[in-house]
Nucleic acid binder design. Structure first.
Length: 282
DNA sequence: GTCCAGGCTCTTT
DNA sequence: AAAGAGCATGGA
């Protein structure tokens, strides 16, 4: 790899925590603080030494235009953490534990399919299914050390997959959801480009028109691809947190969203990610 | 064997 | 509106 970018004096960033935080599924560990990611049709390597990041596979121009945003390095996490700290001991512990987490700005389409697969599923199996889908319907990007790297397929590329083909990629009963959702996007029934500018409420309504997307999956998509930090995804782990630490008995979407916005504020989605990473690490 | 995993759809009260 | 059944799959 010839292209290389070095970023120095980076605060609140850990590639290890990011790769292991359940928001991205195509970052693999090479060795300690050395990861390879398949992102937006590129294969990139991130080597972290403390506050210094060495990114192989991209140019400085590409970093400035695209990748600093992808890694959310333009956002001031120090002030966000200062805002979230002191609310309660559980969140404080979670922030201390996952202080290097950043909310990546990933591709909307890829997040849609990824989080449709995530429902009632576990992270290793989600990774495997995404990998299989990419190998069959994506484009070969490069081959290094005998390992082939495939891009995540575009909506058009994935529209060539039948329900049976998708099932063979290990997505289980979600095969129909993926096929239908892909069709709705290719046909323009839902236009993804309009989502980022919408409010959280509006964009959720739009996303939930798609097959296989409910409140939780919509929140994940919007948090992990549209920078909507006020989205608060509630999965089984977060329900556990809400019941154990915050006195919830039943976790209705409406009640939880109100609590999250009132209590954690406009960055409740980032607070959620700290808590999620924390409880899974216990 | 049972339970669970970053839940959703469809049906029934 | 709210609650329950069913759903693929593999690991613990």
């Amino acid at each position: 790899m010839t292209n290389q970018v070095i970023v120095d004096r980076v605060e609140a960033f850990s590639i290890e925590q990011i790769a292991d935080s359940g928001q991205a599924f195509r970052w693999e560990k090479n060795k300690e603080n050395d990861y390879t990611g398949i992102v937006n049709g590129h294969v990139i390597q991130m080597i972290q030494e403390g506050q210094k990041l060495t990114i192989n596979g991209i140019t400085q121009k590409e970093y400035d235009e695209t990748w600093s945003h992808y890694f959310d390095l333009n956002r001031d996490y120090v002030s966000i953490v200062a805002d979230l700290k002191g609310k309660d001991e559980h969140l404080d512990s979670a922030i201390a534990f996952g202080s290097g987490i950043r909310i990546l700005n990933q591709d909307i389409w890829e997040m849609i399919i990824t989080f449709i697969i995530s429902g009632n599923n576990n992270i290793p199996r989600i990774k495997k299914a995404i990998n299989d889908i990419s190998a069959r319907y994506g484009r070969l990007i490069c081959e290094e050390n005998g390992k082939k790297y495939y891009s995540f397929p575009s909506p058009q590329e994935l529209s060539h997959a039948s329900v049976e083909d998708l099932r063979a990629c290990g997505v289980g009963y979600r095969d129909k959801y993926i096929a239908k959702t892909t069709e709705m996007i290719v046909s323009g029934e839902v236009v993804l480009e309009t989502l980022p500018a919408m409010s959280l409420t509006e964009s959720k309504i739009e996303l939930k028109k798609l097959m296989g997307i409910g409140d939780k999956v919509a929140d994940c998509i919007l948090l992990f691809s549209c920078g909507k930090t006020n989205a608060f995804p509630v999965d089984t782990w977060v329900k556990k947190i809400l019941k154990t630490y915050y006195g919830f008995e039943k976790t209705s979407v409406k009640d939880v969203n109100k609590f999250a916005n009132d209590y954690f504020g406009e960055y409740c989605g980032i607070a959620q990610q700290y808590l999620f990473y924390y409880i899974r690490g216990l």
